[in-house]
Amino acid sequence: MKASALRRWAIQAALLLAVGGLFALAIANARANLLARGIPTSFAFLNQVAGFSLNQSVIPFTPLSSYGRALLVGLLNTLMVSALAGALATFIGFAAGFARLSRNWALARLAGLYVETIRNLPLLLQILFWYVAILSPLPAPEHAHQFAGFFLSNRGLTMPALSFAQGWPAIDWPFFDPSVNRFNVEGGLRLPPEACALILALALYTGSYIAEIVRAGVQAVPRGQSEAAAALGLSAAQARRLVIRPQAMRVITPPLISQYLALTKNSSLAAFVGFADLMQVSGTILNQTGAALQVIAIDMALYLSLSLATLALMRLYERRLRWGGRG
């Protein structure tokens, strides 16, 4: 007994020593390499002037702003794109998931075709397809497709927005007037084509995964449940709302949350189309300052905290289920 305990300690100590030694070696190498190449080793560069502009920003940003602010813009853009794509993906996913369960054969097959095709294509291919093959050949703002105040052109999608410019909430309608701006639609909220392609591709891609989650969740509710609901005199709609949905949502929600997390991580593919998300901004900063270590550390920390926050949310939800539920 004592010998085996001793061996356990020895193994663990050796492991920790090896890991620590690896880290120490890496840090020593890094210091030597960084000094040799004249790369900054502190976070002071965050306060320096960035000197580049970004194609999308929810907070004021000019080329004179600092690197730190550029990273903040990137983070906010990542969150914005993820939120928009997440909402759209949820809608698409639930619609396609229910459609696959439909009694209508044609609808079920159509939804199945969507899910099977989109899931088996790389997300990057889809983003590039939407960006290069669909959105770029759109007409110039002069000949933009217009629908209910929405303008779709090769400069992106411009939509009506809530504006507080005059001090009270008013709708800011986009318009195209050659005398004001010959090259773009003015007013409203504009999503550049990069963001449109990213949101569209992310929503369709994640939607196909959510569709499968929804289908599995609904199918996980035993048939006896709806039969029992019918026996109690509930209508089909009531049974769906009061019996099936609460039970299906229990199965659906945890994987749904991990899909949102995957979507947020996948939004880093923005770097391929040049949308100013966290990854793209950090890539630019990395190239300008050479501070690879610091920039990547910041990125990792931000993405990790997003992941951990989502995981904590999921644990909370699961605990609530245990309390309320099956005993």
């Binding site: 190498n29 890094a30 390499n33 960084l34 991580k265 996948n266 880093s268 593919l269 770097a271 990854m279 950090s282 890539g283 990395l286 690879a292 270590l293 990547i296 990125d299 990792m300 993405y303 990790l304 992941s307």
Partner: peptide, 16 residues
């Protein structure tokens, strides 16, 4: 973390 971040890390930090 996203795969892109891992690739960035492998590309920029392995040589360091």
């Amino acid at each position: 973390v996203p795969l892109i971040a891992v690739l960035f890390m492998a590309n920029a930090m392995l040589p360091i």
